[in-house]
């Protein structure tokens, strides 16, 4: 299997949605590995949606923005919809001032709303501890 990526949380599968996230320590090498692994998983799991939780990022510079934009484009070409969820307000303000709007990347206020937008329903009878909360 793939080596663990120190800069990203694991990729979980919930139905036909993949759930993952980014951490601050994303260097170029890890970003490439992350993109490769995620696109492979989209195909292998037949995922129709991908939720990327960015709530732990205290900074999105043009490098991370490019990574997210490329991920969304590649996922779309593979038939999956990407939602970037949980961007911190200070990060969003700075991103706009950098002149980067993450064009083509769908966003959601938080992971829960992102999962809802991707049509993921909590299985009836399961406990309130939604699986994606484990990512935070």
């Amino acid at each position: 299997m793939n080596a663990p990526r120190p800069s990203a949380v694991p990729i979980l599968r919930l139905g036909d949605v993949l759930v993952t996230g980014l951490l601050n320590e994303l260097d170029d090498t890890s970003a490439l590995m992350f993109t490769d692994e995620l696109t492979e998983r989209i195909v292998a799991d037949g995922a129709r949606g991908v939720l990327i939780d960015v709530s732990r990022l205290d900074l999105i510079d043009s490098f991370v923005a490019r990574t997210l934009t490329e991920l969304a484009t590649m996922a779309r070409l593979l038939g999956a919809r990407v939602i970037v969820a949980g961007m911190r307000p200070a990060v969003a303000i700075t991103l706009v001032e950098l002149g980067l709007q993450l064009r083509g990347v769908e966003t959601a206020l938080n992971a829960e709303q992102g999962m809802h937008a991707l049509g993921w329903q909590q299985a009836p009878g399961s406990s309130r501890g939604d699986s994606y909360d484990a990512l935070r």
Binding site: D58, L59, I60, D61, S62, F63, P89, A90, V91, I93, T94, E97, L98
Partner: peptide, 17 residues
Amino acid sequence: ALVDQTRIVTAASELAR
């Protein structure tokens, strides 16, 4: 404050890169 911190660190990240 937090937003200004983020602005400065982001600028530094771009220039360092």
